[in-house]
Structure formats: C-alpha cells, structure tokens
C-alpha cells in the first residue's frame, strides 16, 4: 500500500511545507507539513455534512462564508458566533477531511502538483499529521476490500434487490437502502444524507455482501478467438489400426 501514497506528500511533510497538493481526484491543504483540510469532487464537503445533515440552515453557512471567508476563518467564525460547538466542528471537519483525503490519495497515474502558500478559507480547525492521513487512507481501502472486494460497486448506481422477508437491516444501512433507486450512486446517496462518502461506501458494500443490493457485473473482455487450425496437410497420418479397432468395437455393441 505504501507505494500508493504520493512520495511528494512525504517530502512536503518533511520540509513542513504550506500550500495545496493537487492530485487527480482531489486536493490536500497543508500548513507546516500538516494536513489542515481536504477536498474532493467525490466527497461531500463540510457544508454538505452540516446542511444536509440538518445541523445548519444553508443561510447560516452562507453567512459564515460571507463574513469570514475572506479572512480564511470560517471554521472559527462558526464556533465564535455560537452556530456550532467546538466538538461538532472538529468531528464534522475531520469527517470531511479524511473522506476527501481517501479519494485524493487513491492510487492514480495522474500528475501530482503542489502550489506553495495557498491556504483554504475554512481556516485552522484540527491539523492532522500527513503520515496519519496517508496511513488511514490505505487502511480504508483495505477495509472496503475486506467487506466485499468489488470496487466497481463504489461508482455505479445502487440497485436494490428484493429483500429477504423478516431480515432486519441496521438503521444506518436502511437509510442508504431507502435512497437506492437504481439511479443514485453511493456518492449521491452520501450527499442526500449529509454523510461522508466513505461511510456510505462501507454501507453499500455491506448491503451488497448481504445480497440486498446488486453487485454490478464487470464487463468481461470478449472471449479470445480460438487458436487457428493448422494448415491442411500438417495433420499426422491417422492411425488406421486404431480406427479399425474402434469401428469393430462399435459394431459389436450394436
């Protein structure tokens, strides 16, 4: 798993760099080599978790951006203005940070860039060491594989299967299942519920392992063509005596 982690992240942590690390599927914001924020198009942001989760009205979030965004102090403002408790902000922000980092650090062949000096408007909340973020991303990948080793399920629309009568589905999985309509992907379900995408992937893989949602079939490569026949004339001469004995045996059994 170590090879999957960006070597650049290790170096930036060592040199205590400040800026943003941009990879194919997201970005990690560093201050003094520590991860202070992460964003990925595949993961709901902290605003999604707070607003869709029902903790903050959208207007309250937008006011915080308007009043503290330019100062890069949105997190602090949410707490100081009494909108959130410190613990709530930290739990929610760490949830979003590790979620986006999981997708950002996914093995990819794309380029990795770093822009020095860039900071994020959320501002300081609870920095995490880059080594912990990298290790946790690898652990999460292994956790998903251990539950149900079919990664294609993570990006496909979630298709429910007819439930077995009398089976009790845990509450959190039930809410995921209730939004599975054959159109929404796990990511769309996560946004609707105001939940980290990884947490939804865990539930979707568990549901699939229990036969409650379909596991998408991976398109198989077309079957290889049969080996061409050897050109005429290259066959060994037929064994005449063997053929005779076969004929005789068949006639005897008639």
């Amino acid at each position: 798993m170590k090879a999957a982690v960006s070597p650049m992240l290790v170096r930036l942590a060592d040199e205590r760099a400040t800026g943003v690390l941009i990879r194919e599927r997201g970005a990690l914001y560093l201050v003094d080599g520590q991860v202070v924020h992460a964003e990925s198009p595949a993961a709901p942001g902290i605003d999604d978790l707070l607003v869709a989760g029902g903790r903050l009205p959208r207007a309250g979030w937008e006011e915080a951006i308007a009043r503290a965004g330019a100062r890069h102090m949105v997190g602090r403002f949410l707490v100081d203005s009494g909108r959130l408790a410190d613990g709530e902000l930290e739990i929610c922000h760490l949830g979003a940070l590790f979620d986006a980092a999981f997708f950002t650090l996914a093995p990819s062949s794309g380029p990795t860039r770093f822009r020095y000096g860039v900071s994020h408007w959320i501002g300081p909340v609870r920095p995490v060491s880059a080594a912990i973020v990298a290790r946790e991303s690898a652990r999460r990948r292994a956790l998903l594989a251990a539950i149900w080793p079919y990664p294609d399920i993570d990006s496909a629309p979630v298709v429910p299967r007819a439930p077995t009568a009398g089976r009790r589905i845990p509450g959190r999985q039930r809410r995921v299942l209730s939004l599975a309509d054959g159109v929404r992907t796990p990511e769309a379900i996560a946004r609707a519920l105001g939940r980290p995408a990884f947490h939804t992937l865990i539930d979707v893989r568990r549901l699939a392992a229990n036969g409650l949602v379909e596991t998408p079939t991976v398109p198989t490569p077309p079957p290889a063509l049969p080996a061409p026949l050897p050109p005429f004339g290259q066959y060994a001469d037929p064994d005449i005596s063997l053929l005779r004995r076969l004929r005789d045996a068949l006639e005897e059994s008639l």
Binding site: L49, L50, G53, G54, R55, E88, I91, C92, G95, R172, L193, G194, R195, H199
Partner: peptide, 10 residues
C-alpha cells in the same frame, strides 16, 4: 455513544 444533531457515528 455521542449523540449529534448531524449525521455521525462517534
């Protein structure tokens, strides 16, 4: 278990 008013599992 910590009860929160947003979706969490802490």
């Amino acid at each position: 278990f910590v009860e929160t008013t947003f979706d969490s599992s802490v």
